[in-house]
């Protein structure tokens, strides 16, 4: 690690709550170590604001190791910032140049209203999961885990889809604010496994219906979601979702 420090200008979206209009504020931060993470840089800004008796910038974050899916942020116009296959909390300041101006905005999608500043409400994703993102079994009375062998390529592909962290970058990036990649990841994971296959088409139908109801747009196959997905989830899963959805519609 060759560590140095940089100074930055930050253009940060500030908004009191969902009912009020927001606007950009400009702040400066100095002597930021290039080994710091992006959120550690925001911590420095917030400490500065607190010391000036100003309200710190509200943003969502928790695990700070790229797995909980709580951090978000549009940084210089890109979901999770200018790097690929990482979340905002894994973005490091060595990606930026000394003296650069960085713009920081919340997710902007109809399904994710702003709560405050950079914090948005993503309960819509929970509601989509509640509509069908599960195998309908209860605790107990389960046969041995090795009773049903699963071909390794299927298990691996299911794992690729299951890596979704539910951060919302797919819908936030999509020009139609579609949550198709999120829905497809779950539908595809479970459709690939014998345990989930039984309900695969009804699951697809219910989850898509809920997604539509909650104000997410249609998928027009631009592939932007795949590019910005911090877990590199492939849009090939959307094709599997469409197959299962079609099966359900044919049955109707």
């Amino acid at each position: 690690m060759s560590s140095k420090t940089i100074n930055l200008k930050l253009k940060v979206w500030r908004q009191l709550n969902a009912k009020t209009k927001g606007k950009f504020e400009i702040y400066e931060v100095k002597n930021i170590s290039t080994d710091s993470s992006f959120l550690e840089m925001v911590d420095v800004l917030n400490e500065q604001l607190v010391n000036e008796s100003k309200e710190p910038v509200a943003f969502d974050h928790d695990c700070r190791e790229g797995i909980c899916g709580m951090c978000s942020l549009f940084i210089n116009g890109r979901a999770h910032g200018p790097d690929t296959e990482i979340t905002t909390c894994q973005l490091h300041m060595r990606t930026f140049k000394d003296g650069e101006t960085i713009s920081i905005e919340p997710w902007r999608a109809g399904g994710f209203p702003v709560i405050k500043d950079l914090m948005v409400d993503r309960t819509a994703y929970d509601k989509i999961m509640q509509a069908g993102g599960f195998v309908s079994i209860s605790t107990g009375g389960i046969p041995d885990a090795n009773a049903i062998p699963i071909a390794k390529p299927d298990a691996d592909e299911a794992m690729d889809a299951a890596a979704c962290i539910g951060c919302g970058s797919c819908a936030a990036t999509c020009k139609n604010s579609s949550a198709m990649l999120f829905v497809a990841a779950k539908v595809s994971q479970l459709a690939l496994l014998p345990q989930g296959k039984i309900e695969a088409s009804i699951r697809a139908k219910n989850m898509v219906a809920k997604m539509d109801e909650l104000g997410f747009g249609n998928c027009s196959n631009t592939g932007a979601c795949e590019v910005e997905c911090p877990k590199g989830i492939s849009i090939a899963h959307i094709a599997r979702l469409n197959r299962e959805y079609l099966v359900a519609k044919v049955k109707d």
């Binding site: 599960f134 195998v135 079994i137 605790t139 107990g140 389960i142 046969p143 041995d144 885990a145 062998p149 699963i150 390794k152 298990a155 691996d156 299911a158 794992m159 299951a162 994971q189 479970l190 496994l193 345990q195 989930g196």
Partner: peptide, 12 residues
């Protein structure tokens, strides 16, 4: 057993 039945994609 429970996790496999839920669709947890353990390594195989």
């Amino acid at each position: 057993d429970q996790s496999v039945a839920q669709g947890v994609p353990f390594a195989r």
